[in-house]
């Protein structure tokens, strides 16, 4: 069974790998749009990753900053969809 910790690690690993960011730059509550880690294409690729990795589809109405602004928010969004 996948735990919230596993989910968080996978999301974090994805963001680090795909933004070429320094691991020390990214905390669980780092604001990934505000800090410029992800832009609109980055968000689009992230949504695809969530679908492929966790089987979670994002709908129009779920595209709000509260669901994607940090690793913690993304994990909470995924948990809410389980």
């Amino acid at each position: 069974m996948i735990t919230a910790v596993d989910t968080k690690n996978k999301v974090k690993e994805y963001i680090i790998k795909n933004t070429l960011a320094n691991v020390s730059q990214i905390e669980d509550d780092t604001l990934i749009f505000e800090t410029g880690l992800l832009d609109s294409m980055g968000l689009l690729f992230l949504i695809e990753f969530l679908k492929e990795e966790f089987g979670v589809e994002t709908h129009d109405e779920e595209l709000v900053v509260e669901n994607f602004e940090s690793i913690n928010s993304i994990v909470a969004f995924l948990e809410s969809k389980r």
Binding site: S40, I47, L63, V64
Partner: peptide, 14 residues
């Protein structure tokens, strides 16, 4: 783009 610009999330196309 369907999101509201004042909601502070990058634009995603539909």
């Amino acid at each position: 783009i369907k999101q509201d610009i004042s909601k502070n999330i990058p634009a995603i196309f539909s």
